[in-house]
Design a protein around this nucleic acid. Structure first.
Lengths: 362, 362
DNA sequence: ACACTCGATGTTTGCGCAAACATCACGTAC
DNA sequence: GTACGTGATGTTTGCGCAAACATCGAGTGT
C-alpha cells in the first residue's frame, strides 16, 4: 500500500450513506380527470378531449383545461386508458439472457423503434430451468400487460423453461426457426457463413476449420450447417467441428486445441467473442495471425476492429432485425392478422487484418 | 468467388419469405370473469376469489371455476386489475443507451431481481437531443404504466433530453450523483480507481497516466478525480489526461498519443473497451505490455481475461448494483417513503497479465 | 322571422375487476 | 323449537377514462 487513505472524506456526496425520509405523503389520491374538470369549470369529457388532442375544443377552453392540468399535476391513468381501449401500447420482449451482444443490440433497436411508434417495451427474462424447481414469476405470461410479444430466443426453449405464450397475443420471433408457426425475422446466418468460408477458400486455404457455438443453439447450428455445405459444394474436406459456448474463454480453450493441428490454416469462428479467445490461444501457441492462420468471426462487435489483429468478420445488422421485428408485430396487431413465414436480414463480410493468403499458397 | 451458389434453396424454412394469413379473427372480445362465471355457474366474485387464491371457496366450487377458466382460456385483464389496485407491478428503467456494458449488465440484474419480486421491467430509452427537434415518444413519461422508476443515467441528462420525471413516482438513481435529491446506488468509483493507481505505484512506476472517459460523464469524472487525488496523496507528478468516448476505437487513438510519450510506463484506463484499443495501439507502436507499459482497466468485462495480454482491471459488481436498485425502489414503493442518500457497492482489483514492475525499477 | 345546421360542450354508460356488503343455508346452544 | 353464529356465495358499487349520444346556442338561407 502507498500512502493514501480512503478518499471518501473528500467526496461526501457519493459516500455518505445518509438516509433522509420524508413522511409518507399518505394516500395522495392521484388527480383524475374529474379534478381537472372541476378546477377548469368544464366537464370531464372535455378534459379527455384536450388530453387526447381531439379537435372540437375551442382555444380558450383548451388553455383553461391545460392550465388546470398543470396546476394540479394531472397525468392520465394508463390503466384506465388501457381498460377502455384494450391496448397497453406495450410490447413484451422475452429473452433468456442479456449476456449476448446480439440480444442486447437487437433489444436496443426494438426499444428505439417501439418508442418511435409510441410503444413501450417490457423486458421479460425467463430463467433456464436449471434453477431449482422455483420458476420465475412469469410462468404466467398471460397476465402481462402487453399487446404483443417479440420472442428473442429459440422457440423450443419456451417449453424447456415451462412457460407458454398467452393465446390471442401476436408474436414475432427472432433468432429461431419457427416460420411455420410464427412470423420470424432473422439474420441471414447461412449466407453470412457462406461469405466467410468462401472468403477463406478464395485466399487459397485448402479447407476451413470451424469453431461453433453451443450444440443446442439454433444460430450455431445454422452457421455450422452453412459452413459444411459451402465446403462440400467446393469439394473440400470437412474437418471435425470444435464447440464453444459463445464466451471468449471457451474460444481460448478451443483455440488451444486447434492450434495443435498443423493442417489448420483457416478458422471460421461462430462469433467474435470466441474469436477473441481464439486469437489469444493462437498467439500463446506461437501461431501468427494472419501469417500462419487466418481467422474470420461473426457479429462485428464495435470493438472487433480493435482486436489484435483487427478481426475480419461477418457483420450482422442487429438494428435492422430489431426494426423489422417491431414493424412486423405492430402490423399484426393493427391489422389483426396473424402471419407466418421468415424474413431474412442480409449480412456482409467485413475484411480486416486477421485473414491473409494461405501460407505457401496452394 | 468459388463454386457454390447461394444456399437458400436447400434451407427453405429460413429463406422462403412466404406469408400466410389467417383471417382476422374479428373482435375476439377476450373472455372476462363474467364468462367464466357463467360457464362455471357461479358469480363473478367467486371467480375473482379463485383467481386471487382467496380462502373461503369450497374445493368443489374452486375446481369447477378452474376448469371453466381452462376451457375458456381465461386470463385476467391486468389493466382492470391495475385500475382497481392502483399498482402496475412494473418498474420503469430509463437509460440513454444499451451500448455500454455497464448499463446492460445492470439492466439484466434489475430485470432478474424485479422478476423475482413479481415485477416486470419497462425499458425507456431516451434519445439524445442531438436528434433534430423531434423528441422521442416519451417526453411525457407521466403516462407510463409504472409504479417506480430506476434512472440508469446521469440526472442532469434528463434536462438535456427535455424530459421530466412524473411527480409522485418513486425514483432510484444509478450511475449518477444526486444523493441529495434521490436515493442513489452506485459502484464505488473512487475506491476502485484508488486501488488501480496504487497497484501501479506499488509496482514501482514513477507515476500513472490516465485515459479518461468523455468529459461530461459522471463516472469518468469520478474515476479521473480519484486518480488525481491518489497521485497527489503519494506526492507524484500528475500527467495530462487523455480523453476517449468509452469506445475501443477511441482507446486506440488515445493509445497512439500515449505511446509517443517516453515517460509513460503505466496507464490507468477508465474502462476495458478503451483499454482494448489502447493495447492494440501500444502493440502497433512496438511498446510491449506489460514489459514496457503496464495497463489497468475498469469494469472487468467477461472477455477482459482474453485480451492480449489478459487485462488487469477493476471489477465492478453490476449485478449487485441492479439488485440494490430494485430492493431500494420497492422498499420506497411499499413503505411509501421517499429516501435520499447514496449507497456504494465495493469494487476490487483483478490482477492479470497487463501489469508488471516498472522497467528498470525505481 | 323561421327552421335548420353545425360546432362546442355536457351526460350517460360500461370496460373488467375486487373490495364491501348482503344473503342464504346450515348447524349448534339453550 | 327458536335464536343465533358461521362459512360459502351472490350483489352492488366504483376505480378513471372515452366512446356514444344529448343538448345548447349561434349562425345561415330563404
Amino acid at each position: 500500500m502507498t500512502t493514501t487513505d480512503r478518499l471518501d472524506e473528500d467526496v461526501p456526496a457519493t459516500t455518505a450513506p445518509v438516509v433522509t425520509r420524508t413522511p409518507p405523503v399518505l394516500p395522495v389520491r392521484r388527480v383524475s380527470m374529474a379534478d381537472v374538470a372541476r378546477r377548469a369549470g368544464v366537464s370531464a369529457q372535455t378534459v379527455s378531449r384536450v388530453s387526447n388532442g381531439h379537435p372540437g375544443v375551442v382555444a380558450a377552453t383548451r388553455s383553461r383545461v391545460l392550465d388546470a392540468m398543470a396546476e394540479l399535476g394531472y397525468r392520465p391513468n394508463s390503466a384506465a386508458r388501457a381498460l377502455k381501449s384494450g391496448s397497453f401500447r406495450t410490447i413484451g420482449v422475452i429473452l433468456f439472457s442479456l449476456g449476448t451482444t446480439g440480444n442486447v443490440r437487437t433489444l436496443e433497436a426494438i426499444a428505439a423503434s417501439a418508442a418511435a411508434e409510441g410503444y413501450a417495451i417490457t423486458v421479460i427474462p425467463v430463467e433456464a430451468p436449471t434453477q431449482d424447481g422455483v420458476h420465475g414469476a412469469f410462468t404466467r405470461l398471460g397476465e402481462l400487460a402487453v399487446d404483443a410479444i417479440i420472442l428473442l430466443m429459440e422457440v423450443h426453449l419456451l417449453d424447456v423453461a415451462q412457460v407458454s405464450l398467452p393465446p390471442g397475443v401476436e408474436v414475432v420471433v427472432a433468432d429461431s426457426d419457427a416460420g411455420d408457426r410464427y412470423a420470424v425475422v432473422d439474420t441471414d446466418q447461412a449466407d453470412g457463413s457462406r461469405q466467410a468460408v468462401e472468403h477463406l477458400l478464395d485466399l487459397g486455404h485448402a479447407t476451413v476449420h470451424h469453431l461453433a457455438g453451443p450444440a443446442h443453439s439454433f444460430a450455431a447450428e445454422r452457421r455450422a450447417d452453412a459452413w459444411r455445405r459451402t465446403l462440400e459444394a467446393a469439394g473440400r474436406a470437412v474437418p471435425p467441428v470444435e464447440h464453444g459456448d459463445w464466451s471468449a474463454a471457451s474460444g481460448y480453450e478451443a483455440g488451444r486445441r486447434l492450434a495443435g493441428r498443423a493442417d489448420c490454416t483457416a478458422v471460421f469462428v461462430a462469433n467474435d467473442q470466441m474469436a477473441l479467445g481464439l486469437l489469444r490461444a493462437l498467439h500463446d501457441a506461437g501461431r501468427r495471425v494472419p501469417e500462419d492462420v487466418s481467422v474470420v468471426g461473426f457479429d462485428d462487435l464495435p470493438e472487433s476492429g480493435e482486436f489484435l489483429p483487427p478481426l475480419t468478420t461477418v457483420h450482422q445488422d442487429f438494428a435492422e432485425v430489431g426494426r423489422r421485428c417491431v414493424a412486423q408485430v405492430l402490423r399484426q396487431v393493427r391489422e389483426g392478422v396473424h402471419e407466418t413465414g421468415t424474413r431474412l436480414v442480409p449480412t456482409r463480410l467485413v475484411r480486416r487484418a486477421s485473414t491473409a493468403p494461405a501460407p505457401g499458397g496452394r
